[in-house]
């Protein structure tokens, strides 16, 4: 059983009336993986995570957590699962340690073991000095950290974190990254969702891109970037004038799409190699367009997302 994948999803579908939030999603996550689930708002990330946390009943599909069927053996499946929702709350009229004590007790810890576990998790999120503060007195970022501590209480082997970094300052984000990497090193798997790719880039070992309920792409960060790099590049051109004329001229090029005009700048996506970019610039100058700057912005995670979504649209 130890060799079982941390998570297996087969043909998962979630409908809200006529709207399909998750459409035939299949995924396998090995132990020790930090998987970033990324996509724009409404892509189906939260619905997927809520199904995995057993808080939402799917239309159909199979989910196995550490080899246990989520719908057939929910108690065993959920035993080693940690879930941290988006904008996770704490109980306002409980002290931080009381809040954690509640869940440590619920997860079966008793006596000194319970106290030690609470202290350990508080130390892990660097909130040991806040243990006697009330929930209502915590900032947004601190609240997120307390909930993260709660999620870690029972030493989960699969963590589901829905937009965990929202509200966290850069230091807290770094701490979150370190905690997740530490957990992964211990063999735990993590699914982190976000609509901000740069949040995930330095945190995850693999990434899945969701759009309109479908998983468009999944793979390691490096593979994903490599795949996309050769296919599309965001380019920004600065001009002295004739912005509309340049945009019209670009529209005639089949390798160009998503043209946007901002003042004297034209941004677009260009499918082609470095040499093709060079040819494009030469053609613009030969066409007597007043180009001041030509800036290709390659490899960013945002362009990965944009590229995949645009491909899906086409």
């Amino acid at each position: 059983m130890d060799q079982a994948p941390a998570l297996e999803i087969d043909n998962l579908r979630v409908d809200y009336g006529d709207f399909t939030a998750v459409d035939d999603l299949s995924l396998k996550l090995p132990p020790g993986e930090i998987f970033g689930l990324v996509g724009p708002n409404g892509a189906g990330k939260t619905s997927t995570i809520r199904v995995l946390a057993s808080l939402l009943e799917p239309t159909y599909g199979e989910v196995r957590i550490l080899g246990h069927d989520l719908f057939e053996e929910p108690v065993k499946a959920l035993e080693r699962l940690g879930y941290m929702p988006d904008l996770a709350p704490v109980v306002p009229n409980l002290k931080v340690w009381e809040f954690l004590d509640l869940y440590a007790h619920s997860f079966g810890f008793r006596g000194s073991e319970k106290r030690d576990r609470v202290d350990h998790c508080l130390a892990k999120v660097k909130l040991g000095d806040k243990r006697n503060d009330y929930g209502r007195a915590l900032s947004r970022g601190m609240t997120q950290r307390v909930v993260l501590a709660k999620t870690l209480l029972h030493n989960p082997k699969l963590l589901l974190l829905d937009e965990p970094a929202s509200g966290m300052d850069p230091l807290a984000r770094r701490d979150l990254r370190l905690i997740l990497q530490e957990l992964a090193a211990d063999g735990a798997s993590v699914i982190v969702s976000s609509h901000i790719l740069s949040e995930l880039a330095d945190m995850c070992t693999s990434v899945g891109v969701m759009h309109k309920g479908r998983l468009l792409h999944s793979g390691s960060i490096a593979d994903t970037l490599a795949t996309i790099k050769s296919e599309a590049t965001a380019v920004r051109v600065e001009l002295v004038d004739s912005v509309e004329a340049v945009a019209d001229w670009l529209r005639r090029d089949e390798r160009v799409d998503e043209i946007q005009i901002e003042g004297l700048r034209v941004s677009f996506r260009f499918r082609g190699e470095k040499r093709d970019q060079h040819e494009l610039l030469r053609a613009m100058i030969r066409g007597d367009f007043p180009v001041v700057a030509f800036s290709p912005r390659e490899g960013g995670m945002e362009s990965v997302l944009m590229s995949l979504i645009t491909e899906e649209r086409h």
Binding site: S54, V75, L81, A88, P89, S106
Partner: peptide
Amino acid sequence: IDQTLDYQRLTPL
């Protein structure tokens, strides 16, 4: 409303 009920749902209690 606070969603703390969901936390409790996920415990093995």
